[in-house]
Write a protein that binds this DNA or RNA. Structure first.
Lengths: 220, 220
DNA sequence: CTATTTGAACTGACCAGTCAGTTCAGTTAG
DNA sequence: CTAACTGAACTGACTGGTCAGTTCAAATAG
Protein backbone atom coordinates (compact mmCIF):
# COMPACT_ATOMS: atom_id res chain seq x y z
CA UNK A 1 0.00 0.00 0.00
CA UNK A 2 2.61 2.44 1.04
CA UNK A 3 4.70 1.60 -1.94
CA UNK A 4 4.35 5.05 -3.27
CA UNK A 5 7.54 5.92 -5.00
CA UNK A 6 9.71 8.78 -3.91
CA UNK A 7 8.24 10.47 -6.94
CA UNK A 8 11.37 12.42 -7.58
CA UNK A 9 9.90 15.67 -6.55
CA UNK A 10 13.51 16.38 -6.76
CA UNK A 11 13.11 19.99 -5.82
CA UNK A 12 14.66 20.92 -9.11
CA UNK A 13 12.07 23.61 -9.18
CA UNK A 14 13.16 26.19 -11.61
CA UNK A 15 13.52 29.35 -9.68
CA UNK A 16 11.06 31.29 -11.76
CA UNK A 17 13.95 33.63 -12.14
CA UNK A 18 12.75 37.01 -13.01
CA UNK A 19 9.56 35.78 -14.53
CA UNK A 20 7.09 38.49 -14.01
CA UNK A 21 4.82 36.79 -11.55
CA UNK A 22 1.33 37.94 -12.21
CA UNK A 23 -0.76 39.91 -9.85
CA UNK A 24 -1.47 36.67 -8.06
CA UNK A 25 -0.80 36.21 -4.45
CA UNK A 26 2.56 34.74 -3.69
CA UNK A 27 2.25 31.00 -4.09
CA UNK A 28 4.58 28.24 -3.11
CA UNK A 29 7.29 27.37 -5.60
CA UNK A 30 6.11 23.87 -6.15
CA UNK A 31 2.64 24.82 -7.21
CA UNK A 32 3.80 27.30 -9.80
CA UNK A 33 6.26 24.81 -11.20
CA UNK A 34 3.52 22.21 -11.39
CA UNK A 35 1.10 24.57 -13.07
CA UNK A 36 3.79 25.52 -15.54
CA UNK A 37 4.44 21.91 -16.42
CA UNK A 38 0.73 21.26 -16.76
CA UNK A 39 0.44 24.24 -19.09
CA UNK A 40 3.25 22.99 -21.25
CA UNK A 41 1.99 19.43 -21.38
CA UNK A 42 -1.59 20.34 -22.13
CA UNK A 43 -0.67 22.97 -24.70
CA UNK A 44 1.25 20.33 -26.59
CA UNK A 45 -1.38 17.61 -26.42
CA UNK A 46 -4.44 19.77 -26.93
CA UNK A 47 -2.80 21.61 -29.80
CA UNK A 48 -2.28 18.31 -31.54
CA UNK A 49 -5.49 16.48 -30.87
CA UNK A 50 -8.00 19.05 -29.73
CA UNK A 51 -9.49 19.76 -26.33
CA UNK A 52 -12.02 16.97 -26.49
CA UNK A 53 -9.50 14.49 -27.86
CA UNK A 54 -7.16 14.61 -24.90
CA UNK A 55 -7.84 13.03 -21.53
CA UNK A 56 -6.93 14.48 -18.18
CA UNK A 57 -4.98 11.30 -17.48
CA UNK A 58 -2.81 11.90 -20.52
CA UNK A 59 -2.14 15.48 -19.54
CA UNK A 60 -1.20 14.43 -16.04
CA UNK A 61 1.09 11.71 -17.32
CA UNK A 62 2.78 14.04 -19.80
CA UNK A 63 3.38 16.55 -17.04
CA UNK A 64 4.78 13.82 -14.79
CA UNK A 65 2.05 14.41 -12.27
CA UNK A 66 -0.93 12.47 -11.02
CA UNK A 67 -4.46 13.08 -12.10
CA UNK A 68 -5.39 14.33 -8.66
CA UNK A 69 -2.83 17.09 -8.96
CA UNK A 70 -4.57 18.41 -12.03
CA UNK A 71 -7.77 18.68 -10.04
CA UNK A 72 -5.91 20.16 -7.10
CA UNK A 73 -4.45 22.94 -9.24
CA UNK A 74 -7.42 23.44 -11.54
CA UNK A 75 -11.02 22.86 -10.73
CA UNK A 76 -11.84 21.00 -13.91
CA UNK A 77 -10.59 20.15 -17.35
CA UNK A 78 -12.56 23.08 -18.69
CA UNK A 79 -10.94 25.39 -16.17
CA UNK A 80 -7.48 24.18 -17.13
CA UNK A 81 -8.14 25.00 -20.76
CA UNK A 82 -9.57 28.42 -19.97
CA UNK A 83 -6.46 29.27 -17.97
CA UNK A 84 -4.30 27.82 -20.71
CA UNK A 85 -5.85 30.17 -23.25
CA UNK A 86 -5.35 33.13 -20.95
CA UNK A 87 -1.75 32.07 -20.34
CA UNK A 88 -0.95 31.91 -24.05
CA UNK A 89 -2.60 35.21 -24.85
CA UNK A 90 -0.72 36.89 -22.01
CA UNK A 91 2.57 35.77 -23.52
CA UNK A 92 1.59 36.88 -26.99
CA UNK A 93 0.32 40.24 -25.75
CA UNK A 94 3.53 40.89 -23.85
CA UNK A 95 5.56 40.22 -26.98
CA UNK A 96 3.43 42.44 -29.18
CA UNK A 97 3.32 45.29 -26.70
CA UNK A 98 7.08 45.21 -26.44
CA UNK A 99 7.14 46.26 -30.10
CA UNK A 100 4.99 49.35 -29.66
CA UNK A 101 7.08 52.47 -29.82
CA UNK A 102 10.23 50.64 -30.87
CA UNK A 103 10.16 52.51 -34.16
CA UNK A 104 8.71 55.75 -35.37
CA UNK A 105 7.55 54.33 -38.65
CA UNK A 106 4.08 52.80 -38.14
CA UNK A 107 4.46 50.46 -41.11
CA UNK A 108 7.77 49.16 -39.84
CA UNK A 109 6.23 48.71 -36.43
CA UNK A 110 3.42 46.72 -38.00
CA UNK A 111 5.90 44.54 -39.85
CA UNK A 112 7.73 43.87 -36.63
CA UNK A 113 4.51 42.89 -34.92
CA UNK A 114 3.54 40.45 -37.63
CA UNK A 115 7.06 39.04 -37.48
CA UNK A 116 6.85 38.72 -33.73
CA UNK A 117 3.53 36.93 -34.07
CA UNK A 118 5.24 34.44 -36.38
CA UNK A 119 8.06 33.98 -33.88
CA UNK A 120 5.50 33.36 -31.20
CA UNK A 121 3.86 30.72 -33.35
CA UNK A 122 7.24 29.08 -33.88
CA UNK A 123 7.80 28.90 -30.16
CA UNK A 124 4.29 27.82 -29.19
CA UNK A 125 3.17 25.92 -32.27
CA UNK A 126 0.20 24.44 -30.48
CA UNK A 127 -1.36 27.62 -29.24
CA UNK A 128 -2.65 28.78 -32.59
CA UNK A 129 -4.08 25.33 -33.23
CA UNK A 130 -5.94 25.42 -29.95
CA UNK A 131 -7.13 28.93 -30.73
CA UNK A 132 -8.53 28.23 -34.17
CA UNK A 133 -10.04 24.92 -33.23
CA UNK A 134 -12.00 26.18 -30.25
CA UNK A 135 -12.76 29.74 -31.21
CA UNK A 136 -15.95 30.39 -33.23
CA UNK A 137 -17.90 27.66 -31.47
CA UNK A 138 -21.24 29.12 -30.53
CA UNK A 139 -22.25 28.75 -27.85
CA UNK A 140 -19.00 27.18 -26.79
CA UNK A 141 -17.66 26.20 -23.43
CA UNK A 142 -15.21 29.10 -23.48
CA UNK A 143 -17.23 31.71 -25.37
CA UNK A 144 -16.76 34.35 -22.72
CA UNK A 145 -13.06 33.64 -22.40
CA UNK A 146 -12.60 33.95 -26.13
CA UNK A 147 -14.62 37.14 -26.32
CA UNK A 148 -12.39 38.74 -23.73
CA UNK A 149 -9.07 37.50 -25.10
CA UNK A 150 -10.03 38.28 -28.66
CA UNK A 151 -10.80 41.86 -27.68
CA UNK A 152 -7.42 42.22 -26.01
CA UNK A 153 -5.55 40.96 -29.04
CA UNK A 154 -7.59 43.02 -31.48
CA UNK A 155 -6.96 46.10 -29.37
CA UNK A 156 -3.22 45.77 -29.93
CA UNK A 157 -3.60 45.18 -33.66
CA UNK A 158 -6.16 47.94 -33.83
CA UNK A 159 -3.78 50.41 -32.20
CA UNK A 160 -1.08 49.53 -34.69
CA UNK A 161 -3.49 50.00 -37.59
CA UNK A 162 -4.57 53.30 -36.06
CA UNK A 163 -0.97 54.51 -36.05
CA UNK A 164 -0.63 53.58 -39.70
CA UNK A 165 -3.85 55.43 -40.49
CA UNK A 166 -2.50 58.48 -38.66
CA UNK A 167 0.87 58.44 -40.40
CA UNK A 168 -0.16 57.56 -43.94
CA UNK A 169 -3.00 58.23 -46.29
CA UNK A 170 -5.20 55.16 -46.15
CA UNK A 171 -8.25 53.79 -47.91
CA UNK A 172 -10.99 55.06 -45.62
CA UNK A 173 -13.62 53.00 -47.38
CA UNK A 174 -12.26 49.90 -45.65
CA UNK A 175 -13.96 49.12 -42.34
CA UNK A 176 -11.45 48.99 -39.53
CA UNK A 177 -12.92 45.97 -37.78
CA UNK A 178 -13.00 43.79 -40.87
CA UNK A 179 -9.48 44.83 -41.72
CA UNK A 180 -8.21 43.79 -38.31
CA UNK A 181 -9.96 40.46 -38.62
CA UNK A 182 -8.37 39.95 -42.03
CA UNK A 183 -4.90 40.65 -40.64
CA UNK A 184 -5.50 38.39 -37.70
CA UNK A 185 -6.78 35.61 -39.92
CA UNK A 186 -3.96 35.92 -42.40
CA UNK A 187 -1.37 35.74 -39.62
CA UNK A 188 -2.85 32.64 -38.06
CA UNK A 189 -3.54 30.74 -41.23
CA UNK A 190 -0.26 31.60 -42.93
CA UNK A 191 1.57 30.62 -39.75
CA UNK A 192 -0.34 27.39 -39.31
CA UNK A 193 0.07 26.46 -42.95
CA UNK A 194 3.78 26.99 -42.65
CA UNK A 195 3.99 24.76 -39.60
CA UNK A 196 1.78 22.04 -40.94
CA UNK A 197 2.13 21.86 -44.69
CA UNK A 198 4.98 24.12 -45.80
CA UNK A 199 7.80 24.21 -43.27
CA UNK A 200 10.19 25.27 -46.01
CA UNK A 201 8.62 28.70 -46.24
CA UNK A 202 10.73 31.37 -44.56
CA UNK A 203 9.37 33.62 -41.88
CA UNK A 204 10.10 36.77 -43.90
CA UNK A 205 8.19 35.34 -46.79
CA UNK A 206 5.16 34.77 -44.58
CA UNK A 207 5.41 38.19 -42.99
CA UNK A 208 5.62 39.80 -46.43
CA UNK A 209 2.49 37.99 -47.57
CA UNK A 210 0.53 39.16 -44.55
CA UNK A 211 1.86 42.71 -44.90
CA UNK A 212 0.39 42.82 -48.38
CA UNK A 213 -2.86 43.68 -46.61
CA UNK A 214 -1.31 46.82 -45.12
CA UNK A 215 0.22 47.79 -48.44
CA UNK A 216 -3.23 47.60 -49.95
CA UNK A 217 -4.65 49.69 -47.14
CA UNK A 218 -2.17 52.51 -47.63
CA UNK A 219 -2.82 54.72 -50.66
CA UNK A 220 0.29 55.01 -52.78
CA UNK B 1 -17.69 -9.53 -40.66
CA UNK B 2 -20.69 -7.62 -41.81
CA UNK B 3 -23.52 -9.58 -43.29
CA UNK B 4 -24.63 -6.92 -45.70
CA UNK B 5 -21.85 -5.16 -47.50
CA UNK B 6 -22.16 -1.44 -47.00
CA UNK B 7 -22.42 0.36 -50.27
CA UNK B 8 -18.99 1.56 -51.12
CA UNK B 9 -19.67 5.09 -52.20
CA UNK B 10 -16.02 5.27 -53.06
CA UNK B 11 -14.75 8.55 -54.37
CA UNK B 12 -17.49 9.61 -56.67
CA UNK B 13 -20.44 10.63 -54.64
CA UNK B 14 -23.23 12.26 -56.48
CA UNK B 15 -23.62 15.34 -54.38
CA UNK B 16 -26.34 17.12 -56.21
CA UNK B 17 -29.76 15.92 -55.22
CA UNK B 18 -32.64 15.96 -57.58
CA UNK B 19 -31.05 15.04 -60.84
CA UNK B 20 -31.57 11.41 -61.62
CA UNK B 21 -29.22 11.68 -64.55
CA UNK B 22 -26.94 8.78 -65.23
CA UNK B 23 -25.72 7.41 -61.97
CA UNK B 24 -23.61 4.49 -63.03
CA UNK B 25 -24.84 2.13 -60.39
CA UNK B 26 -28.51 2.01 -59.73
CA UNK B 27 -29.02 3.69 -56.41
CA UNK B 28 -32.49 4.21 -55.08
CA UNK B 29 -33.63 7.72 -54.29
CA UNK B 30 -33.93 6.77 -50.68
CA UNK B 31 -30.24 6.24 -50.17
CA UNK B 32 -29.25 9.57 -51.61
CA UNK B 33 -31.95 11.32 -49.66
CA UNK B 34 -30.82 9.64 -46.48
CA UNK B 35 -27.20 10.53 -47.08
CA UNK B 36 -28.21 14.09 -47.80
CA UNK B 37 -30.08 14.36 -44.53
CA UNK B 38 -27.19 12.84 -42.67
CA UNK B 39 -24.84 15.36 -44.27
CA UNK B 40 -27.05 18.24 -43.27
CA UNK B 41 -27.59 17.05 -39.73
CA UNK B 42 -23.96 16.26 -39.04
CA UNK B 43 -22.71 19.47 -40.67
CA UNK B 44 -24.89 21.42 -38.30
CA UNK B 45 -24.01 19.52 -35.15
CA UNK B 46 -20.31 19.06 -35.83
CA UNK B 47 -19.91 22.66 -36.87
CA UNK B 48 -21.27 23.74 -33.53
CA UNK B 49 -19.66 21.34 -31.15
CA UNK B 50 -16.76 19.76 -32.96
CA UNK B 51 -16.32 16.29 -34.39
CA UNK B 52 -15.45 14.70 -31.08
CA UNK B 53 -18.23 16.50 -29.25
CA UNK B 54 -21.06 14.94 -31.21
CA UNK B 55 -22.27 11.36 -30.91
CA UNK B 56 -23.46 9.14 -33.70
CA UNK B 57 -26.76 8.72 -31.88
CA UNK B 58 -27.30 12.47 -31.94
CA UNK B 59 -26.54 12.70 -35.63
CA UNK B 60 -28.92 9.87 -36.40
CA UNK B 61 -31.67 11.43 -34.31
CA UNK B 62 -31.17 14.86 -35.90
CA UNK B 63 -31.42 13.30 -39.35
CA UNK B 64 -34.56 11.41 -38.32
CA UNK B 65 -32.85 8.13 -38.99
CA UNK B 66 -31.73 5.20 -36.90
CA UNK B 67 -28.20 4.58 -35.79
CA UNK B 68 -28.03 1.44 -37.86
CA UNK B 69 -28.69 3.48 -40.97
CA UNK B 70 -25.65 5.61 -40.29
CA UNK B 71 -23.50 2.52 -40.21
CA UNK B 72 -25.20 1.11 -43.24
CA UNK B 73 -24.51 4.23 -45.31
CA UNK B 74 -21.11 5.03 -43.84
CA UNK B 75 -18.71 2.55 -42.40
CA UNK B 76 -17.84 4.64 -39.38
CA UNK B 77 -18.15 8.04 -37.78
CA UNK B 78 -14.74 8.90 -39.14
CA UNK B 79 -15.81 7.94 -42.63
CA UNK B 80 -18.94 10.05 -42.36
CA UNK B 81 -16.87 13.10 -41.48
CA UNK B 82 -14.38 12.51 -44.27
CA UNK B 83 -17.21 12.33 -46.79
CA UNK B 84 -18.80 15.38 -45.20
CA UNK B 85 -15.64 17.39 -45.80
CA UNK B 86 -15.48 16.23 -49.39
CA UNK B 87 -19.15 17.09 -49.86
CA UNK B 88 -18.69 20.65 -48.58
CA UNK B 89 -15.60 21.28 -50.66
CA UNK B 90 -17.33 19.99 -53.77
CA UNK B 91 -20.09 22.54 -53.30
CA UNK B 92 -17.65 25.36 -52.67
CA UNK B 93 -15.50 24.40 -55.64
CA UNK B 94 -18.51 24.31 -57.94
CA UNK B 95 -19.48 27.81 -56.86
CA UNK B 96 -16.00 29.21 -57.30
CA UNK B 97 -15.44 27.59 -60.66
CA UNK B 98 -18.70 29.04 -61.90
CA UNK B 99 -17.09 32.47 -61.48
CA UNK B 100 -14.06 31.75 -63.64
CA UNK B 101 -14.42 33.47 -67.00
CA UNK B 102 -17.51 35.39 -66.02
CA UNK B 103 -15.55 38.61 -66.41
CA UNK B 104 -12.51 39.69 -68.34
CA UNK B 105 -11.08 41.73 -65.50
CA UNK B 106 -9.04 39.41 -63.25
CA UNK B 107 -9.44 41.69 -60.23
CA UNK B 108 -13.18 41.82 -60.62
CA UNK B 109 -13.21 38.06 -60.99
CA UNK B 110 -11.23 37.78 -57.77
CA UNK B 111 -13.68 40.06 -55.99
CA UNK B 112 -16.56 37.93 -57.17
CA UNK B 113 -14.84 34.81 -55.92
CA UNK B 114 -14.26 36.24 -52.48
CA UNK B 115 -17.86 37.39 -52.44
CA UNK B 116 -19.04 33.96 -53.48
CA UNK B 117 -16.96 32.41 -50.70
CA UNK B 118 -18.76 34.69 -48.25
CA UNK B 119 -22.12 33.69 -49.68
CA UNK B 120 -21.12 30.05 -49.28
CA UNK B 121 -20.25 30.67 -45.66
CA UNK B 122 -23.62 32.31 -45.15
CA UNK B 123 -25.38 29.29 -46.54
CA UNK B 124 -23.24 26.65 -44.81
CA UNK B 125 -22.15 28.43 -41.66
CA UNK B 126 -20.95 25.22 -40.07
CA UNK B 127 -18.63 24.11 -42.81
CA UNK B 128 -15.94 26.70 -42.16
CA UNK B 129 -16.08 25.92 -38.45
CA UNK B 130 -15.55 22.25 -39.14
CA UNK B 131 -12.74 23.11 -41.53
CA UNK B 132 -10.76 25.34 -39.22
CA UNK B 133 -11.28 23.18 -36.18
CA UNK B 134 -10.06 19.98 -37.76
CA UNK B 135 -7.51 21.21 -40.26
CA UNK B 136 -3.90 21.70 -39.07
CA UNK B 137 -4.08 18.70 -36.77
CA UNK B 138 -0.93 16.69 -37.30
CA UNK B 139 -1.12 13.82 -37.59
CA UNK B 140 -4.86 14.01 -37.62
CA UNK B 141 -7.52 11.48 -38.43
CA UNK B 142 -8.25 13.22 -41.72
CA UNK B 143 -4.80 14.50 -42.66
CA UNK B 144 -4.85 12.95 -46.09
CA UNK B 145 -8.36 14.17 -46.80
CA UNK B 146 -7.41 17.70 -45.84
CA UNK B 147 -4.24 17.62 -47.87
CA UNK B 148 -6.21 16.69 -50.95
CA UNK B 149 -9.09 19.10 -50.45
CA UNK B 150 -6.78 21.94 -49.50
CA UNK B 151 -4.86 21.46 -52.73
CA UNK B 152 -8.07 21.59 -54.76
CA UNK B 153 -9.22 24.82 -53.14
CA UNK B 154 -5.81 26.45 -53.39
CA UNK B 155 -5.64 25.51 -57.05
CA UNK B 156 -8.73 27.60 -57.77
CA UNK B 157 -7.48 30.55 -55.75
CA UNK B 158 -4.04 30.14 -57.28
CA UNK B 159 -5.46 30.25 -60.79
CA UNK B 160 -7.30 33.45 -59.99
CA UNK B 161 -4.15 35.01 -58.56
CA UNK B 162 -2.28 33.87 -61.64
CA UNK B 163 -4.74 35.69 -63.86
CA UNK B 164 -4.25 38.86 -61.83
CA UNK B 165 -0.48 38.49 -62.11
CA UNK B 166 -0.86 38.10 -65.87
CA UNK B 167 -3.11 41.12 -66.29
CA UNK B 168 -1.51 43.57 -63.89
CA UNK B 169 1.94 44.51 -62.70
CA UNK B 170 2.37 42.78 -59.36
CA UNK B 171 4.85 42.68 -56.53
CA UNK B 172 6.98 39.73 -57.60
CA UNK B 173 8.82 39.66 -54.28
CA UNK B 174 5.74 38.13 -52.68
CA UNK B 175 5.74 34.33 -52.68
CA UNK B 176 2.68 32.97 -54.40
CA UNK B 177 2.01 30.17 -51.91
CA UNK B 178 2.10 32.40 -48.87
CA UNK B 179 -0.12 34.91 -50.59
CA UNK B 180 -2.73 32.29 -51.35
CA UNK B 181 -2.65 31.12 -47.76
CA UNK B 182 -3.12 34.69 -46.59
CA UNK B 183 -6.15 35.16 -48.83
CA UNK B 184 -7.59 31.86 -47.74
CA UNK B 185 -7.05 32.68 -44.08
CA UNK B 186 -8.47 36.15 -44.37
CA UNK B 187 -11.60 34.85 -46.05
CA UNK B 188 -12.26 32.19 -43.45
CA UNK B 189 -11.50 34.28 -40.40
CA UNK B 190 -13.32 37.39 -41.59
CA UNK B 191 -16.29 35.24 -42.49
CA UNK B 192 -16.30 33.34 -39.21
CA UNK B 193 -15.86 36.51 -37.21
CA UNK B 194 -18.81 38.02 -38.97
CA UNK B 195 -20.99 35.02 -38.23
CA UNK B 196 -19.92 34.64 -34.65
CA UNK B 197 -19.08 38.03 -33.24
CA UNK B 198 -20.10 40.72 -35.72
CA UNK B 199 -23.22 39.77 -37.63
CA UNK B 200 -23.86 43.46 -38.31
CA UNK B 201 -20.95 43.67 -40.74
CA UNK B 202 -22.07 43.68 -44.36
CA UNK B 203 -20.79 41.19 -46.86
CA UNK B 204 -19.34 43.92 -49.10
CA UNK B 205 -17.43 45.29 -46.17
CA UNK B 206 -15.88 41.90 -45.51
CA UNK B 207 -15.08 41.31 -49.16
CA UNK B 208 -13.43 44.73 -49.37
CA UNK B 209 -11.24 43.97 -46.35
CA UNK B 210 -10.08 40.69 -47.86
CA UNK B 211 -9.48 42.29 -51.24
CA UNK B 212 -7.08 44.71 -49.59
CA UNK B 213 -4.58 41.88 -49.95
CA UNK B 214 -4.93 41.92 -53.72
CA UNK B 215 -4.71 45.69 -53.87
CA UNK B 216 -1.43 45.46 -52.00
CA UNK B 217 -0.22 42.78 -54.41
CA UNK B 218 -0.88 44.87 -57.48
CA UNK B 219 1.59 47.67 -58.09
CA UNK B 220 -0.23 50.91 -58.56
C1' DC C 1 -37.17 -10.47 -54.61
C1' DT C 2 -33.62 -7.37 -53.06
C1' DA C 3 -31.90 -3.24 -51.17
C1' DT C 4 -32.56 -0.40 -47.50
C1' DT C 5 -34.02 0.87 -42.99
C1' DT C 6 -35.37 0.11 -38.25
C1' DG C 7 -34.76 -0.29 -33.29
C1' DA C 8 -33.07 -2.17 -29.59
C1' DA C 9 -29.89 -4.80 -27.05
C1' DC C 10 -25.10 -5.48 -26.12
C1' DT C 11 -19.99 -5.00 -25.58
C1' DG C 12 -15.91 -3.20 -24.37
C1' DA C 13 -13.39 0.68 -23.90
C1' DC C 14 -12.76 5.06 -22.16
C1' DC C 15 -13.10 8.98 -19.12
C1' DA C 16 -14.17 13.14 -15.88
C1' DG C 17 -14.27 13.81 -11.42
C1' DT C 18 -13.81 12.13 -6.35
C1' DC C 19 -11.69 11.00 -2.10
C1' DA C 20 -9.24 8.66 1.55
C1' DG C 21 -4.71 8.28 2.25
C1' DT C 22 0.55 9.62 1.69
C1' DT C 23 4.57 12.65 1.50
C1' DC C 24 7.52 16.09 3.10
C1' DA C 25 9.34 20.79 3.99
C1' DG C 26 8.89 23.42 7.35
C1' DT C 27 7.52 24.91 12.35
C1' DT C 28 7.03 24.50 17.05
C1' DA C 29 8.04 22.34 21.64
C1' DG C 30 11.00 20.06 24.76
C1' DC D 1 19.49 18.78 18.58
C1' DT D 2 15.25 16.17 17.80
C1' DA D 3 10.71 14.62 18.18
C1' DA D 4 6.07 15.77 17.36
C1' DC D 5 3.12 18.20 14.56
C1' DT D 6 1.03 20.79 10.56
C1' DG D 7 -0.89 21.43 6.26
C1' DA D 8 -0.23 22.24 1.46
C1' DA D 9 0.79 19.37 -2.36
C1' DC D 10 0.21 15.19 -4.29
C1' DT D 11 -1.39 10.32 -5.24
C1' DG D 12 -4.02 6.69 -7.72
C1' DA D 13 -7.70 3.44 -7.22
C1' DC D 14 -12.42 3.83 -7.76
C1' DT D 15 -17.17 5.38 -9.36
C1' DG D 16 -20.78 6.32 -12.28
C1' DG D 17 -21.54 7.34 -16.65
C1' DT D 18 -20.93 7.77 -21.80
C1' DC D 19 -20.16 6.30 -26.32
C1' DA D 20 -18.52 4.01 -30.79
C1' DG D 21 -19.30 0.25 -32.97
C1' DT D 22 -21.76 -4.50 -33.61
C1' DT D 23 -25.43 -7.50 -34.42
C1' DC D 24 -29.77 -9.08 -35.98
C1' DA D 25 -34.51 -10.11 -36.73
C1' DA D 26 -38.24 -7.80 -38.53
C1' DA D 27 -40.36 -4.09 -41.35
C1' DT D 28 -40.61 -1.40 -45.57
C1' DA D 29 -39.78 0.38 -50.12
C1' DG D 30 -38.53 -0.07 -55.20
Amino acid sequence: MSTTEPVATDSTSDSTAGSASGSKKLRPERTNATKQRLFEASMELIGERGAAGVTVDEIAAAAGVSKGTVYYNFGSKSDLIAQLLRHGVDIMLARLQAIEGQTNDPLESMTNMVDQAMVFMDKYPSFARLWVSENWRMPGEWSSVFTELRAELLAVIGAAVERVAAGYQVDTSIARGSLEAAIFGAIFVVGLDRQTYNPERSREQCVAAVMTIMHGYVIK
